[in-house]
Nucleic acid binder design. Structure first.
Length: 697
DNA sequence: TTAGGGTTAG
């Protein structure tokens, strides 16, 4: 049964018989023995080792796991001191290394490793690799290098796994050159790289943006007849996507298929994420379908990513329908799923719906986390409901959730928006105490907040003072102050700050140029606006839809509509899609000019492009209608409303207000079921579906 | 390899 097998000083070593070990009674005995002996004497140690030849390691592993879970670490000392047969000691110590590595206890791993080496006991290379992997996962590359060196010194021959782990460590640190050096060393030692080696290097190179070198390695793999898999292509695809090079990424997808390499779920998830980030949710959805056609099962990440894509576009309806889809499958939504939709709702100003979703997730057993609260605090601030923001922040604290720097920053930005600089400063001090020293973002929040409140000099001072905290103002800091000066009408001072920014070699961005163009064009300084517009392009800073809108708006304001139209054409030609702002600006101008046919054409064009007009678009169209005409429109509205159960609650007399209430609700479904909306003074008709019309009015 | 904080337009 229980055999005493060695007694030295106060140390007792027992060996358990395999048969007994697996009976429940014996397991209990072992536990109580461990407990008891630990209480009686700290040096009392139990090691159960099955001495049967078949499967003895498994049983011993089981015992070592228990010994470790009972914190009887001193067993190691007994073993290295040589109380047991050397061979058995090494085997058991290897088990300790294995269990410690499995428990991610790097400190104990290193301790055992070093003790073994000091006593000329050589650990198995597999366990050395386990230690190296733990160190890699903790980004302890220097220590990993030391272990690797010690292995060499005592003559533990590295395996291919050793090399691959070290290569991965170097790559994760961004030390691709060191990785390549090690590759040469491998080849010198005739340790030939395998597919994993190449995959790791391709990953490292892709992260550095060295796409051509990475692609070259794929070529090398093929030449050597090594297996090229999705794990080879994924890092490269991910690297391209991260740089926004979706065309190249998708091209690699095609290349994979040609070479007979099957993409896996994560490959498609990468495509989906990249497309969603660029606002191309419909294309992302197509990849989702491709995945299904290939009998691959989308995971929660696929769903979360696509939901994110829809939310980015403000399309929360499709996001909700995906939430429903995944529930009907075997996949369960996570806190990320809910947070994503809640952020989408907040972005549209639908705070109440977001709050409801918070209740719903709680009912489903998913606890709101710091992200959830930050999203809602941000949403409440945006909606101007600072009281709710405070309540939510406090609720987060009461639940024992620790706000991180993002949560604090969000709250501070809210206080500043409402003008409470003192409260903002207090929160910032609290943040510092909690170990979040001011970063560039918190400075930018203060600079922008203070500037927007009209304290321009104070903001400028803060911009110059942050250097004292070791933080350099960046393009956002300068853009904020420049923007504030422009808004308060001091164009000259704004231009001076812009020059200062350039002289400090802080590169302006499209946002910087856009605020300058917007202000100058809006104030009739069209030549300067044009100057900035061409200057940015000389610097390869590409204008976006907002830049064009700023220009078009200025040109319209100063009745230079032909030039406005030529920019309108230019942006389309450059693939920059006009949005609801662009159309509203042009519709507004054409209404002022009485070009009703053009208004009608523009309105139809935007609906055709599935761009949802909002209250300002409709106000622009309705503002110049004669009273008769307006009442005609409202009569028509009544006619439609009366036939519609859902909206019939709106009293006919309140139709005008109802118009405003229903503006901007959800996506327009322009189904081509035309009905006339209203007639302009020259009898031009505006057409849209009944559905749109109700939304509009 | 999915979610949150800072600068832009009607």
């Amino acid at each position: 049964m229980l055999r005493e097998c060695g007694l030295a000083h106060k140390t007792i070593i027992f060996v358990l018989d395999e048969f007994d070990l697996f009976t429940q009674g014996k397991q209990r005995l072992l536990y109580s023995l461990l407990d008891a002996m630990q209480c009686v004497t700290s040096q009392a140690v139990v090691i159960g080792v099955s001495c049967r030849l078949n499967g003895w390691l498994k049983s011993a592993y089981w015992v070592v796991e228990r010994v470790i879970s009972c914190n009887v670490h001193r067993v190691v000392d007994v073993l290295v001191d040589g109380y047991l047969n050397l061979q058995v000691s090494v085997e058991i110590l290897n088990l300790f290394l294995r269990v410690y590595a499995k428990n991610a206890n790097v400190e104990q791993c290193l301790l055992v490793f070093e003790k073994m080496l000091r006593n000329q006991l050589l650990p198995d290379v597999k366990n050395c690799n386990r230690i190296l992997r733990s160190l890699r996962d903790r980004n302890m590359v220097a220590k990993a290098r030391e272990v690797y060196r010690m292995m060499g010194e005592v003559g533990i021959k590295p395996s291919i796994v050793t090399y691959n782990t070290m290569l991965d460590s170097f790559c994760r640190e961004g030390e691709v050159q060191q990785a390549l050096d090690l590759l040469s060393e491998m080849q010198r030692k005739e340790r030939y790289p395998n597919d994993v080696t190449y995959n790791i290097l391709i990953n490292g190179l892709s992260k550095k943006g060295e796409f051509n070198l990475a692609r070259g390695l794929i070529g090398e793999m093929l030449n050597k007849g090594l297996e090229v898999s999705a794990y080879t292509y994924n890092p490269l695809i991910y690297g391209y996507c991260e740089k926004g090079m979706v065309v190249e990424a998708l091209g690699l997808g095609v290349e994979m298929e040609i070479r007979g390499v099957s993409p896996i779920v994560s490959t498609y998830n990468t495509f989906i994420y990249a497309l969603c980030q660029q606002g191309r949710a419909s294309e992302a959805r197509q990849w989702f379908s491709v995945m299904l056609k290939k009998n691959l099962v989308p995971d929660i990440r696929s769903y979360n990513t696509l939901i994110y894509g829809y939310c980015r576009l403000g399309n929360t309806n499709d996001a909700f329908s995906l939430l429903h889809d995944l529930r009907t499958g075997d996949i369960f939504p996570t806190v990320v799923t809910y947070n994503t939709i809640m952020d989408g709702l907040c972005g549209k100003g639908e705070l109440e719906d977001a709050m409801q979703l918070k209740d719903e997730m709680t009912r489903c057993g998913i606890s709101p986390d710091v992200f959830t609260y930050t999203i809602l605090v941000h949403g409440s601030c945006k909606a101007g409901n600072l009281l709710l923001a405070k309540e939510l922040f406090d609720e987060m604290l009461h639940k024992g959730l620790e706000p991180d720097s993002v949560a604090y920053t969000t709250r501070i930005a809210g206080e500043l928006r409402l003008g409470d600089i003192l409260k903002a400063c207090k929160l910032q001090e609290e943040m510092s105490v909690k170990g979040f020293p001011p970063d560039i973002i918190i400075y930018n929040v203060f600079v922008d907040g203070i500037a927007k409140l009209g304290n321009l000099e104070e903001a400028t001072e803060l911009l110059h003072k942050m250097v004292g905290d070791g933080l350099m103002p960046d393009h956002v800091t300068y853009t904020s102050v420049i923007h504030a000066y422009l808004e308060f009408g001091n164009l000259k001072k704004a231009r001076e700050l812009f020059d200062e920014m350039i002289s400090k070699e802080i590169s302006p961005t499209v946002v910087t140029y856009t605020v300058l163009i917007h202000a100058h064009a809006g104030k009739g300084r069209l030549e300067l606006a044009h100057m900035y517009f061409s200057e940015m392009q000389q610097k390869s800073i590409l204008p976006n839809v907002i830049t064009y809108n700023a220009l078009i708006n200025g040109l319209c304001t100063y009745r230079r509509i032909n030039e406005a139209y030529s920019y309108f054409a230019e942006m389309k030609a450059r693939g920059i899609g006009p949005n609801k702002y662009t159309y509203t600006i042009l519709i507004n101008e054409n209404c002022d000019l009485g070009n009703w046919q053009e208004v009608s054409r523009l309105f139809k064009e935007m609906l055709d492009k599935r761009i949802q007009p909002d209250s300002l678009t409709y106000s622009a169209m309705l503002k110049n209608l004669g009273k008769d005409c307006k009442s005609h429109a409202i009569e028509y509205l009544d006619f439609i409303i009366l036939g519609d159960e859902e909206t019939s609650v709106i009293a006919a007399g309140e139709a005008d207000r109802a118009v405003m209430v229903h503006f901007g609700f959800g996506p327009t479904s322009y189904l081509g079921k035309h009905k006339s909306l209203c007639a302009f003074p020259d009898n031009t008709k505006l057409y849209c579906s009944k559905h749109d019309f109700i939304r509009a009015v």
